[in-house]
Amino acid sequence: MNQIDDKTDEELVRLVLKNKTDAFDILAKRYEKKLLRYGKRFLYNHENIEDVVQNVLTKAYVNIKSFDPSRKFSPWIYRIAHNEFINLIKKEKKLPFLFLEADVIFSFAGEKNFLKDIETREEKEEIEKYLHKLKEKYREPIVLYYFEEKDYQEISDILKIPVSTVGTRLKRGRSEIKKLLHEKRK
């Protein structure tokens, strides 16, 4: 079991494709807590998070043959999670048709290094307090970047938006949180 535990996500997927259920068990355990954390921050402690994450893992298994093991597994399963979270939000309220958002159509000026100053745990905790006040389109990239430690390319693959738009949304989310922090301190 130790040997299989040491395998990479992609190697585990190859075993799952050979019907090795224990490989999926390990893979799912690796991602269960991460997806719960992602969901709780993005959906702001929605009461059905566990059910949604169960759906994510179920869909990951059912659709595993669509995954190309030469690519990274993490963005793939996070993409499934993103879709499930968005579907949950849509059931409860109307979301704009994100395909036609201006920053997806026109964004060019993504700033890749502007967030280097957010290093400390205290700053992250501060950001977490105000996450729920952000719009979903700014909240999600911040959760994925700061708390799930995804890079720009991965966030682009998860959200299926241009890399430059990832930078733009991170910047705007950060500005919104700064404003909220500033108002709180007044």
């Binding site: 259920t21 999926f24 799912a28 269960e32 994450v53 298994y61």
Partner: peptide, 12 residues
Amino acid sequence: KNPITEKVVSKI
């Protein structure tokens, strides 16, 4: 420790 995974794997 991983109740969600257990549910899914049981179904499998």
